[in-house]
Computed example of a mutant assay.
Amino acid sequence: MNSNGGGESNGSGESNGTGTRERILTAAAALFRRQGYTGTGLKQIAAESRARVGSIYHFFDGKDALTEEVVRTGGAAYGAMVLALLDGGPDDPVDALGAAFEQAAVDIALTDYADACPIATVALEVASTNEPLRQATADVFASWLDVLAAWCRVVVDDPDSARDLATAVVCALEGAFVLARAMRDPEPILAAGRSVTLLAAAMRDG
């Protein structure tokens, strides 16, 4: 990653401040979610972020470096958002899990089924073709599982069982996102939420 000092010119008269860098990251994140890594070019990212291609190279060492930062920063932000949603949900943690899926169904419909998981589209593309980016997506998923497994201890105290529940939650949500986007219907997410709450209740009461 190159210097990100504010106010430095890219040689085209554009100021390379923090605002430009953040616009590039925001635009790239949205495009990667909707179009994937291969389907998104630097020229399109530059146009969407109201920047120049030279600005992207000023802040990032090419498309892979930009993508890795988008994956890691976007993944961390999404994980924090989900945790806040769970913590701010119903007092019963099983109900809180169900409410999180219900909110996910609302959110994806509001974006016309364009936006879901911030890293899943990239993860599927790069799993067998780009080891640094595969590792970045794997690290994000691992961090989600760690945080969610810790939260799931309020449902089931055994750490291994809590990890299993966290894995089931992530798998159910990611799979439901794929079906919902393909079918343009939030019902797969709602159904996944109902299944997860049944599983969580059974693990807690068993």
Rank of each mutant, 00 (worst) to 15 (best):
182 A>N: 11
173 L>K: 14
195 S>A: 15
188 P>L: 05
177 F>Q: 09
168 A>L: 14
190 L>R: 14
174 E>C: 10
180 A>W: 06
156 V>A: 09
156 V>N: 05
162 A>N: 03
186 P>T: 06
191 A>S: 12
189 I>P: 06
161 S>Y: 12
177 F>I: 05
190 L>P: 01
157 D>A: 15
189 I>W: 08
176 A>G: 00
163 R>K: 11
152 C>L: 03
150 A>R: 14
190 L>E: 09
174 E>M: 09
156 V>H: 09
177 F>P: 07
192 A>R: 00
194 R>V: 04
164 D>H: 13
190 L>C: 00
191 A>I: 13
185 D>L: 07
185 D>W: 07
176 A>E: 00
166 A>H: 04
159 P>Y: 03
182 A>L: 13
177 F>S: 03
180 A>C: 07
163 R>Q: 10
187 E>F: 05
160 D>V: 14
180 A>N: 03
186 P>C: 06
187 E>T: 14
181 R>T: 11
168 A>F: 12
156 V>W: 03
194 R>F: 05
153 R>S: 08
189 I>Q: 02
177 F>V: 06
159 P>R: 05
185 D>F: 02
175 G>P: 06
150 A>G: 11
175 G>N: 05
151 W>P: 07
194 R>T: 08
189 I>C: 05
183 M>K: 13
169 V>M: 12
192 A>W: 01
170 V>L: 15
166 A>W: 04
174 E>R: 09
155 V>H: 02
151 W>S: 02
166 A>R: 04
155 V>Q: 04
178 V>C: 01
163 R>C: 07
171 C>V: 15
149 A>V: 03
169 V>C: 12
155 V>G: 02
192 A>F: 03
193 G>A: 07
174 E>Q: 12
192 A>M: 01
173 L>R: 15
159 P>F: 01
186 P>K: 10
183 M>N: 11
174 E>S: 12
177 F>W: 15
151 W>Y: 13
150 A>C: 06
179 L>G: 00
156 V>D: 00
182 A>Q: 13
195 S>Y: 11
179 L>E: 11
149 A>T: 05
187 E>D: 13
158 D>N: 07
166 A>T: 01
152 C>D: 03
157 D>T: 13
195 S>F: 12
174 E>I: 08
163 R>N: 06
149 A>G: 11
